[in-house]
Design a protein around this nucleic acid. Sequence first.
DNA 1: TTGATTTTTTGACATTTGTCAAAAGTTGGG
DNA 2: CCCAACTTTTGACAAATGTCAAAAAATCAA
Lengths: 197, 197
Amino acid sequence: MPNENLYPEHESLFNVFNSIYPLSDELKKAIVNESNIIHVEKKTQLLNAGETSNNIYFINKGAARVYYLDKEGAEITSWFLFENELLISVYSFFTGLPGFEYLETLENSTLIVLKREKLNKLYEKYLDFNFIGRKLTEFYYIRNEIQANELRVLTAKQRYQRLLTNNPKLLNRVSLGHIASYLGISQETLSRIRKQI
Amino acid sequence: MPNENLYPEHESLFNVFNSIYPLSDELKKAIVNESNIIHVEKKTQLLNAGETSNNIYFINKGAARVYYLDKEGAEITSWFLFENELLISVYSFFTGLPGFEYLETLENSTLIVLKREKLNKLYEKYLDFNFIGRKLTEFYYIRNEIQANELRVLTAKQRYQRLLTNNPKLLNRVSLGHIASYLGISQETLSRIRKQI
DNA sequence: TTGATTTTTTGACATTTGTCAAAAGTTGGG
DNA sequence: CCCAACTTTTGACAAATGTCAAAAAATCAA
């Protein structure tokens, strides 16, 4: 497979896509041409509330979070993303409307950036790419639904324990305050839960 | 448009699809050929936990819910669906694996049923149908994310008030117990909240 | 290393929500 | 129309979680 390392910066992305549906060389080339690689420092705001999410990011290296402000102005983290994951503000990116979410890197990161317009052009031109887009959307949707179910049913302690067993590496890379809001509990309660375990 | 009433039982479905992306006559015909119309009584179990969600349902008339059992065996409703909406067990249908969710009608209902295999065949044969599938998945995803966010941030009372303003008709069609579990609160608490308002 | 900044923990107390049991109300089939 | 089954409400109390303020610990840039 001489193609494997033709686009080293896009290797991880293509691996993700290929595991869903084989990518044609033409589509690969188009993706490489339309996207950019960027290096950003930790705490970079990739999107602010009120703006429209016009970019989709693939995390080659690093970490990021999606958050928004509640009524009192406190930051609520709704999602953490790491290597080989896609980063958008779901609402704003999918609707094309200004949204309420912020996107922020948590670590110095290497990202592949693709403009929403360009992604949509790819969807129009390469119809089988919609298959990949649909599958990825389904995949993230499932994760989101699991999260909603856990918020409904589990106690604060149980939610933390789930995170601990299902995503232990996350704890080393994300601050407690962010995790607390992600789990829908106060930082103090999470601190107390941790002591018990 | 002489085609408009060619398939009266599929009119609502095609309206939904057409509002996303124009449906070719050929695709319409294929959908009609591959799907069935069924009439089911209220409280019909369309899917049980442990089974694989092999059907997608479009609700022409009626109502349904998605639910699962928590550790104590109590029913937790995770979703209500009404006319012009699609009904699946997200996890099981998307992965093709046996799931944990039940699908149940809440009213006597008229449904369009399409087997997952047949849907996938349609996706393969009519690639632009993936565009519609992707958009619909995105749409339901957004709804799910809003729900997760509200479960994280809002108090029980606020979640009920949101439901009241955003979905008032739902209250006339769904029992309080189901709504309580959907909002992640006990039935007694919901009853007390209602009295306050 | 050090001092400033940020993050985490702790304590005391308030509030929200849950649980269990029973009563009241509602619904639908015979 | 009435009874049985189901749904909703109420009361008393327990448990979970939040809030505010302050202390302790960790982090990081100079």
